[in-house]
Write a protein that binds this DNA or RNA. Structure first.
Lengths: 202, 202
DNA sequence: AGGTTGGCTGTAATTTTAAACAGCTTTGCG
DNA sequence: CGCAAAGCTGTTTAAAATTACAGCCAACCT
């Protein structure tokens, strides 16, 4: 049967997180007994059935007869988000172009995803067309921070400046005009703040 | 006894490379038997004694009584090179400030190390003070490529332009002057070409 | 010539791990 | 209510993996 990729239960997510953490910090997946120790199970079968459930939902792959034969289905790493369709959540599966193998904790606060920048409106801040912006999800921003914002169903990268109910989204390029939003009349959603940048060519 | 960190024999390096590869591609270290299969050993003790040797030299850590209890001493990842002392090789241990957990193949051609950029001479190319430049080691460059070059024992990042024996290293900032080198009279070493960039703050 | 080191074969005991079987409790649903 | 699914306990068995012991051979050093 094909991986069904159903949604995970809360408990299953915890188990999956623990597996991720093991691989990241110890360089190998846990055994059933290590899962028991971590979650307080008294029976290895508790771990076993969770693993079966995760495998059935396509979150992991189980290799039969091998010690620590757990493989994460995702390639770990950070999701790279491309062009975001109007209205949809930014991390929706259909926007994820790829996953890049890098440590989210390389940035501070930690990066949650990478967003491919379109256009040159932030050129003078050293953010060029095609660059990958490392973004930390956060709904609030302080003045001067570079944010990923959603205005009128449009996702944009700009410097944030608030003055009471008035928010200005400032470009870093004289060819572009600031976006001014009166939050009493229009919706403005902060999707996250910039925590870094990656450029993939010279 | 403290890790002696001696130099590895050629065979030991091969073993270590295989362990690295296992962790990277399968998410877990190999067992003794997997090492046997990979190298054609007929005795698990061949693998065992290699592992002991690697552990004695500080290249790995062995955890007793655990399946796949091999931990790499290094954090893998790319070496981050800071201020480069005049004359020394760029990757000398004393210049490596840290190792960043990311996939060198994320860039193309693959990144060999990261160099912390000093100054604003490449500002208009979106390369700012403090940025980490992903560098591919190469001694030749084509016109227009951004290179890491060594002139008069000084390491610098500039755009490369050659006209016969004359090489110009061009800044991307009107406040800085190009560096002109007559390769018939002065030494000019290309250390590598830029293949990407990482910025660690907003 | 003798000793050390690296690199292996071969065997076997012991411990870790995976994985099966049987059953219990709670929650939510038609 | 009946019943399925999630989330466990408890026990057992077989396979996988570690690790000890007893060697052999070639290269290198003194």
């Amino acid at each position: 049967m094909p991986p069904r990729s159903d949604r995970l239960t809360e408990r299953q997510s915890e188990i999956l997180d623990f597996i991720r953490q093991s691989v990241e910090s110890e360089g190998r997946p846990p055994t059933r007994l290590e899962l028991c120790a971590a979650f307080g199970f008294r029976s290895p079968n508790a771990a076993e059935s969770h693993l079966r459930a995760l495998a059935a939902k396509g979150a992991i792959l189980l290799e039969e007869g091998r010690a620590r034969g757990i493989r994460l289905a995702e390639g770990l790493g950070l999701p790279l988000v491309g062009r975001v369709a109007a209205g949809g959540p930014i991390l929706a599966t259909e926007h994820v172009e790829a996953r890049l193998q890098l440590d989210p904790a390389m940035f501070s606060p930690r990066a949650d995803y990478l967003l491919r920048v379109r256009g040159m409106s932030m050129r003078d801040a050293g953010i060029l067309d095609g660059d990958l912006l490392a973004v930390h999800r956060r709904t609030e921003a302080r003045n001067g921070q570079i944010v990923v914002a959603r205005v009128h169903d449009d996702v944009t990268v700009k410097t944030f400046r608030r003055d009471g109910p008035m928010v200005e989204l400032l470009p870093a390029n004289p060819d572009f005009a600031p976006i001014v939003v009166d939050t009493r009349r229009e919706a403005l959603d902060i999707e996250g703040i910039m925590v870094g940048l990656i450029r993939q060519d010279g």
